[in-house]
């Protein structure tokens, strides 16, 4: 890899993958829970929750980054408490970048999972109940497996969105080489310097390849999954 990629490119690539992976890991359980709430439950505040979840789709990313800074910054409401209680800082770290891209990708993930939850035949769940399965067993043995293609799609969308995240990330965790400088940020940085056209093109192609590989892999996986599910 060191022959193919410059140290800067390798660093940005690894960092991008790490951020995207953690973005999916932290948002997946919350995303499944939120999708389930939105798809299956009727409660006061349903509309508000759905508005908040889908807001990052339409709000400028820089606004999301700024709000994160206000909330999670060292002197922010939650950030100060985190720092004083656990000594944790997320601002200007790669973990912060993962949080920022998780929030930006969250609506895509929730939408995909919710659609596939809506498509699950509730009558199958009823049938499972009459066969002696409690709510948890029905969820784990019927609902979750039948929703799996949607969960996979949601995870891939969030992963891909994270690879491309720029605005919220640069606002919240800045552009620190080796810590928060992911591929898009690296591309932006080289463009700021004279003679950056060639390295910028290389980074652009790298980003493109990564996205295509991710989408193709998920498509293959989804196909196998559908076959497994017999649907």
């Amino acid at each position: 890899m060191s022959d193919l990629l410059s140290p800067l490119e390798g660093e940005a690539l690894i960092l991008s993958l790490r951020v995207a992976l953690w973005c999916v890991v932290i948002s997946l359980p919350i995303g499944i829970g939120t999708a389930w709430l939105l798809a299956r439950k009727r409660f006061p505040g349903h509309l508000l929750l759905s508005a908040v979840v889908y807001a990052p789709l339409v709000v400028p990313p820089v606004v999301v980054g700024y709000l994160l800074l206000v909330l999670l910054g060292r002197r922010g409401v939650v950030g100060a408490w985190l720092y004083e209680t656990f000594g944790i800082t997320v601002v200007f770290t790669w973990q912060g970048a993962a949080i920022a891209s998780a929030i930006m990708g969250f609506p895509l993930m929730v939408r995909a999972i919710r659609l596939s939850l809506d498509a699950v035949d509730r009558r199958l769940e009823d049938a499972a109940r009459t066969l002696g399965a409690g709510r948890w067993r029905v969820w784990l043995s019927i609902t979750l497996p039948l929703t799996a293609p949607g969960i996979l799609a949601g995870a891939v969308l969030a992963f891909a969105r994270s690879l491309g995240e720029f605005g919220a990330t640069i606002t919240f965790v800045s552009n620190i080489p080796g810590e928060t400088r992911t591929l898009p940020l690296a591309l932006y940085s080289v463009l700021q310097q004279p003679g950056g056209d060639a390295p910028a093109m290389r980074l652009a192609i790298l980003s493109l390849l990564l996205a295509i590989v991710a989408i193709a892999a998920s498509e293959l996986l989804a196909r196998r999954m559908r076959k497994q599910l017999g649907v």
Binding site: D121, R123, L124, D126, A127, A128, R129, T130, L131, G132, A133, G134, I142, P145, L146, Q228, L229, G230, V231
Partner: peptide, 20 residues
């Protein structure tokens, strides 16, 4: 009593076999 504790078997018009 919830359906899973009733011990009542239910055979539906459309079978409702688990596709997966």
């Amino acid at each position: 009593v919830p359906p899973d504790k009733r011990q009542i078997g239910y055979i539906f018009q459309e079978g409702r076999l688990f596709p997966h």
